[in-house]
Deep mutational scan, measured.
Amino acid sequence: NQASVVANQLIPISTHLTLVMMRSEVVTPVGIPAEDIPRLVSMQVNRAVPLGTTLMPDMVKGYA
């Protein structure tokens, strides 16, 4: 099972991601792979992401 990136807190819209905001967890459905966490740092979310939500490629500007 592959770990995905999950929000560690509420991430407001247009926030630049930091390591503190993300954790890796095995979830269904599978989202952005956990090994991409370093790549996600300083990218922006294009919507509010609630605590515990799996980050999907379409939620992060410039990821997909």
Rank of each mutant, 00 (worst) to 15 (best):
A3K: 12
A64S: 11
L40A: 02
D58C: 06
P57Q: 08
L55I: 14
L51A: 15
I13L: 14
M43E: 04
E35Q: 15
R47E: 08
R39P: 02
Y63R: 03
N8I: 05
G62S: 08
R39I: 09
M21K: 01
T15H: 06
S4Q: 01
E35Y: 13
A64N: 15
M21R: 00
Q2D: 08
V5K: 02
T18R: 10
D58G: 11
G52T: 03
N1W: 11
I13S: 13
V41Q: 06
A3L: 12
L10W: 12
T18C: 05
I32Q: 00
V27P: 01
R47P: 03
M59P: 01
N8V: 12
G62W: 08
S24G: 14
T54A: 07
V30F: 07
L10A: 15
I37G: 03
L40P: 00
P50Q: 11
T54Q: 03
R47A: 07
N8A: 15
T15A: 10
A64T: 15
R23F: 04
T28H: 15
T28C: 08
V27T: 12
T53S: 09
A3N: 07
V6T: 06
M43Y: 08
G52D: 10
P29F: 04
P33A: 11
V26L: 12
N1Q: 10
I11P: 02
M56I: 07
K61F: 12
I13N: 13
I13D: 14
N46V: 12
G62M: 07
M59H: 11
V5L: 03
N1G: 12
I32D: 00
Y63K: 03
M22Q: 00
R39L: 12
L17M: 06
V30K: 12
P29Q: 05
P38T: 11
V5P: 00
G52L: 04
L40M: 06
L10I: 11
L55H: 01
N8H: 06
S14P: 01
T54L: 05
L51T: 15
V30T: 14
I11N: 00
L17D: 00
D58V: 09
P50L: 13
L17V: 02
G52Y: 04
D36W: 09
S4I: 01
V6F: 02
V27R: 14
Y63E: 04
T54D: 02
N8G: 07
S24P: 12
A3V: 08
T28L: 13
L51I: 14
